[in-house]
Every structure is written in C-alpha cells, then in structure tokens.
C-alpha cells in the first residue's frame, strides 16, 4: 500500500521539484531556507497521498505550498506587504500545465550528464564507476586503491549533489516557461 505512494512520489512529485523551489523562492525568501520549505511541502504531500492518490499532483502541490506559506505568514504575524501582494497576484493556474512532463530518454540522458558534470572530480569518478560501469562499492574501492568507507562517503555526497543538480535543471526549465507566460499576459492587455 505504502509502495504505491512511494512510486507516485518518485514518478510524479519529484520531477516537479525544480518548479516547486522556484515557486517557493518567489514567494518566501524571508527567513526560511527553500529546501526546508520544500521538505515540508513534500512531507505534507506524501501524508495527503497516503489517504488516496490525487488526480492532479501538480495542482495539489501548488495548493499545499500555498497553504504552507499562509500558515507561515499567520505564525509570523508581521509580514512585509510586498510578500503578501506578490503572493496574491500569483496566478497558480498558469502553472498547472496539465499532465505530467514528458521527457524523452535523450533529454533525460542530457540532464543526467549535465548533473554528473557538476560533481567534484573524485566523487564523479566514483559515481561513474558505480553507476555507469556497474562496479560494486568494493570493486570501486579496489580499483581506485582507496578504502570502502571512502567510496561510501563519495557515494553519499554524490547522490546528494546529483539530486540537487537535477532539481536545479528543472528550475531552469520552469523559469523559461514562466518568462514566456508573463510576456503573454502583457501582450494580451
């Protein structure tokens, strides 16, 4: 049962990470780290989905993020007017572009390669051997003449940096879409 929620989370929520961070950055730069907010939104989404998977994940994500921000504004009591104004004017529906992003295998590969290139050299080599060559950690350690705990440490660092880099690549994409949307509105007026 929880398995279906796990799969949903990985397949439908995680690809929206970049979009979400961009949204949070725009609306709440005040006193909280974006990744803390993101963690809270992800947790709330996961809990909500445990009672039944949503039909529109993107819409649920934005409404969850909005609720979180409203909660925080209430708790904080004093909020700059700008934060509130900006938040009110946000047209969430323009970001609900509908079904889940379709990314081709080739685009995915390009994204992964770009992300891999952002890692520090040693970490990148180890991720490369472990993931691309399919060596075990022990074989990787032996091949490089380093200890297994060292390899494990690089794997840990590597996966974290990769997760962040892949999220950021999503951010760039979101930014582009947002730009074109805003341009669209001003022309129509």
């Amino acid at each position: 049962m929880s398995n279906a929620v796990d799969d949903w989370f990985m397949q439908e929520v995680l690809p929206l990470e970049g979009e979400l961070e961009r949204f949070l950055q725009r609306h709440w730069s005040d006193g909280f780290e974006v990744r803390d907010l993101r963690q809270e939104v992800f947790s709330r989404l996961y809990k909500a989905a445990s009672n039944g998977l949503p039909r529109n994940t993107r819409a649920l994500m934005y409404s969850t993020a909005r609720h979180l921000i409203i909660d925080l504004i209430r708790r904080k009591r004093v909020v700059s007017i700008e934060t509130v104004m900006d938040f009110e004017s946000w047209d969430v529906s323009s970001d609900e572009a509908g079904p889940f992003d379709t990314v081709s295998a080739r685009q995915e590969l390009t994204m992964l390669r770009t992300a891999l290139e952002t890692l520090p050299r040693r970490t990148r080599d180890i991720v490369h051997m472990r993931r691309i060559q399919g060596l075990s950690q022990r074989e990787t350690a032996r091949a490089l003449g380093v200890s297994e705990p060292t390899v494990e440490r690089h794997v840990s660092q590597g996966v974290r940096l990769l997760a962040d880099a892949l999220g950021r690549l999503g951010v760039d994409r979101g930014q582009q879409r947002l730009k074109s949307k805003r341009k669209g509105r001003s022309h129509e007026r």
């Binding site: 963690q39 996961y46 993931r131």
Partner: peptide, 21 residues
C-alpha cells in the same frame, strides 16, 4: 515522513543515474 520523502528523493536520483549505463 520527512525521512521517507528525503530517502525517496535520493533513491530516485540513484536509480535515474543508472540510466547513464
């Protein structure tokens, strides 16, 4: 839950990286 979603995020990344094979 935060632990679980954080782990899923790493696990998903790690699985995606395997496509680089």
């Amino acid at each position: 839950t935060a632990h679980r979603v954080a782990f899923l995020r790493m696990f998903s990344t790690w699985r995606r990286a395997e496509r680089l094979t």
